[in-house]
Design a protein around this nucleic acid. Structure first.
Lengths: 234, 234
DNA sequence: TGTATACGAAGTGTATACAATGTGAATGCA
DNA sequence: TGCATTCACATTGTATACACTTCGTATACA
C-alpha cells in the first residue's frame, strides 16, 4: 500500500471512529499509537491530525496532543440554532445544482442506508445516513456553506449515536419515516423542486430534533423530588 | 523569537497577504521560499500551509504544492447566495451572546477601521474591516456557523480589494456610510437588540453587495457591439 | 504532615536527510 | 519537422534523530 493511501485510510478510519463515538468526545489521541496502528511515521500522521482539526473532528493544543472534539451542553444549543437554517439552504441549493452522476450517488447511498436499517449496526446506520447527507452537501456546490454543513453533520451523527436506543419501538418507526423522507428528498432534488426540497429539509430536521429532544427531556417518572446534597445548598 | 511564535507570524502574515491580494488568487506558493522568508524549516511551514488549507486560504494538491485559493465567477455567485443568510445569523447571535470584553474589542477594531479610512491604504482598510467582522463572529459563539462565516469574510475582503477604486467619490461616500453602520451595529449589539442587529446586517450587506454589483455590471458605455474574433465563431 | 522544588520520563515540536513524484528539456525516431 | 521517449532536475512526501515542554513523582524542608 502506498504511503498516500495509508494516510487516506487513517483519515477515513479516524473520521468514522469519531462519528460513531468509537472514539469518545474529549478523549486523547496518542500520536505514537496511531502511527503504529496505521503504519505511518509521525510526520504524515501529524498532518492527518491537522486535517482532522481543520474539519472540526479534533482539537489540537500546544505541546499537549490532539483530543477528539468535545460535545457539550453549549454546543448542543448552538447546533439546534444553526442546523435548520443550513440544512434548508443546502437542500434548496442541491435541488438547483445537482448533476445526474450525483443523483446516482445519492440513490446508491440511500440503498446502503436502507440496507443498514434492516441488517446493520447502529454505527453502520449512522455512517450511511451521514453519507447520504454529505452527498446533498456536494450537490449544493457552495464552498461557503460546505464547511458549516459538514461540521453540523459531524455532530449530528454523534448526537444521534448518543441518543439512539434500538430497543425503543418508537425509534424504529422514526427511522423508517426518516428513510421515506430520504426517498422524497431524492425525488424533489431530481425534479429540481426547490420549494419541496426546503419543506422536506424542515420536516426531516424536525423529526430528528424531536427524537433528540425526547432524550434530552424525557417524560417525567412521576416520583417525588429529591433534596439537594448538603454541599449544593446556598 | 520562539519557533511557535514564528509559526504564528507566518500564519498571520500569509493570511494578510492573501486577504489583501498581495498574494494573488491562484498563485503558487513556494515551500522553500516561505521557509527562508519566515526562518522556519519545512515541517512547521507545511503545518502552517495545512492550517491555511483548512481555513480555505489555500488549496493543497498532491505532490504539487500549495496555491492561493481561486476566486472564480462561480464562487462569486455562491458568495452572493450564502452571505446574507450567514451574516444575518451571526449578528443576531452576536447581539445575544456578546460579552463586555468583546464589546471593548469591537470598539477598538472600529477605531482602527476609522483611522484606516482617513490615513490608511486600501489594504489597511480591508484588514481593519475584516477584523471588525471577525469579532462579531467571535461574539456569535457558534462553532457550527463560524467556519462558513470566516470563509465568507475571506472572500469578502478579497472581492472588496478587487473592486475598490479610491478615485471614485461615490466609493468614498459608501465607505463612510459603512463606517456609520458599524457604529450602529456596535450600539445594537451592546443593547442586545437582535431585531435591529438583523436589520443592520441586511443593510450592511446590501451596501456591500451594491458596490460589488456596480463593478461587475457597470453602466453601459453606449458604444456599438464588437464582432467576435474568427477563431471564436462556430 | 503538608508543601515546594527538583528530577526524570513521556510526549510534542523541529530540523534534516532521504525517497518518490512530477516537470521540462533534450534526443531519437518516424 | 513533429512526436514520443528518456533522462535530469526540481519539488514534494516521509522517516528519523534531536530539542524542548509538560507532567508525574520523589525528596527535602518547613
Amino acid at each position: 500500500m502506498q504511503p498516500a493511501e495509508k494516510k487516506q485510510t487513517a483519515l477515513d478510519s479516524l473520521k468514522n471512529a469519531i462519528l460513531t463515538l468509537d472514539l469518545a468526545p474529549g478523549s486523547d489521541l496518542d500520536e505514537a499509537g496511531l502511527c503504529a496502528q496505521y503504519d505511518l511515521s509521525r510526520t504524515p500522521m501529524r498532518e492527518v491530525l491537522r486535517q482532522l482539526a481543520g474539519e472540526g473532528y479534533v482539537t489540537l493544543r500546544q505541546n499537549r496532543g490532539a483530543q477528539v472534539s468535545e460535545m457539550s451542553h453549549r454546543s448542543l444549543r448552538a447546533f439546534f440554532i444553526a442546523a435548520p437554517m443550513i440544512y434548508g439552504a443546502i437542500l434548496q441549493l442541491a435541488a438547483t445544482h445537482r448533476t445526474e452522476p450525483q443523483i446516482a450517488d445519492l440513490r446508491t447511498a440511500q440503498e446502503a442506508f436502507r440496507a443498514a436499517l434492516t441488517s446493520g449496526t447502529t454505527a453502520a446506520r449512522a455512517l450511511a445516513n451521514n453519507r447520504f447527507h454529505e452527498i446533498t452537501g456536494e450537490m449544493a456546490d457552495n464552498p461557503f456553506l460546505a464547511p458549516s454543513f459538514n461540521r453540523l453533520l459531524l455532530d449530528h451523527a454523534r448526537i444521534s449515536m448518543t441518543f439512539y436506543d434500538p430497543r425503543d419501538s418508537a425509534e424504529q418507526r422514526n427511522v423508517d419515516l426518516a428513510c421515506r423522507q430520504h426517498d422524497q428528498i431524492i425525488a424533489a432534488i431530481t425534479a429540481r423542486d426547490t420549494t419541496k426540497a426546503v419543506l422536506l429539509a424542515d420536516a426531516h430536521w424536525r423529526l430528528s430534533r424531536d427524537r433528540i429532544s425526547q432524550f434530552v427531556m424525557p417524560g417525567g417518572l412521576d416520583l417525588p423530588l429529591g433534596t439537594p446534597p448538603q454541599e449544593a445548598r446556598a
